[in-house]
Amino acid sequence: MNLLTWLVEVFNSHWTLPGGQTLLIREVVGNVFGLASALGGMRRRVWAWPVGIIGNLLLLTVFLGSILSPEHELPSLLGQAGRQVMFIAVAIYGWVRWRQASSDGGQVTPRWAPWSARIGIVLIMVIGTVALTPLFRLLGSWEPVWADAWTFVGSLMATYGMARGWTEFWLIWIAVDVVGVPLLFSSGFYATGFMYVFYGVFTAIGFVVWARAQKGDKPQVDTLLPAPQVQRPEETP
């Protein structure tokens, strides 16, 4: 057996669950990398981004199920697959931002997003879901397609919020999980579904950790500069 054949067999290795359902090993491994990335993100470690990218690449191959693994008869979740691509793109952006903070001798400082950003995120999630639903349905994504579109747009906003250091990104993940878990179970992606259940608890903890970190972190450099002193005229006797 040559190396290429071995890699192909490992790539398509799976367990058969009760009821004849298929669980791809790379789906489990991809979610383990995702969990490690989430833990690193909660601790604001730069390595969280490259670890997450590896998990995204593995899960991308999983959600293109009917295309890459037709023998397992897994459905394609195009929203889930597409968001892995977007994860990678946004992760590169976040990786750069967090590396810049690290090179300055510190970490990304958690902060609340401005109200304009909060309103923008809500509008993007709602409008993006409505706009992408018919497109995903046309491309053959699993029903309910709106749930696939919601998880796609919400995941993009959550990853972007993490890159910017906005504490609210944890709350966006919770909104994604509430919709994403039933969708994943109904489409047969059990490993990812169970991982999302765990993420729901984990993201609540992460939100508390980041909210507390806002009180304990040092202020940004520009706030450490002394305020300009106003010269007062000399008093005359």
Rank of each mutant, 00 (worst) to 15 (best):
Y160T: 07
S102I: 03
S13A: 15
W170L: 04
Y199K: 09
Q21M: 08
G20E: 08
I205H: 11
L23R: 08
F33E: 03
L64Y: 07
I172G: 00
I25R: 02
T223D: 13
Q80F: 06
M125Y: 00
G82R: 03
T167E: 05
L156Q: 02
Y160L: 12
I25K: 01
F87K: 00
P226S: 09
G206F: 04
P144D: 04
G41A: 09
A113I: 02
A175E: 08
P50N: 12
H14A: 15
F207W: 14
A175V: 11
E27R: 05
V51C: 09
W49E: 10
W115P: 09
R26E: 01
A89S: 12
S66R: 08
L39I: 10
G82D: 00
L224Y: 02
Q231A: 14
I53M: 13
T5E: 15
R97M: 13
A158P: 05
E73Y: 08
M42Y: 05
W142S: 14
V29S: 05
Q80S: 15
R212K: 15
S141V: 04
F63A: 08
V209E: 10
H14M: 11
Q21D: 14
E235K: 13
P144S: 03
R97S: 15
G188V: 06
R137T: 14
V10W: 13
R83M: 14
V85A: 13
S102R: 13
G52E: 02
Y199I: 06
F63L: 06
G20M: 11
W98S: 05
T22K: 10
L138Q: 12
N56P: 00
W49L: 03
G94D: 04
W150Y: 10
L184W: 01
V230W: 05
H72F: 13
W98A: 01
V51E: 00
L77S: 02
Q220R: 14
W15S: 10
W150F: 13
N31A: 11
Q84D: 06
P50W: 02
E9C: 00
G65Y: 01
L78E: 01
A81C: 12
P75L: 08
I119D: 04
A163I: 04
A131G: 11
L74H: 05
P228G: 06
G193K: 04
G30S: 02
M125V: 07
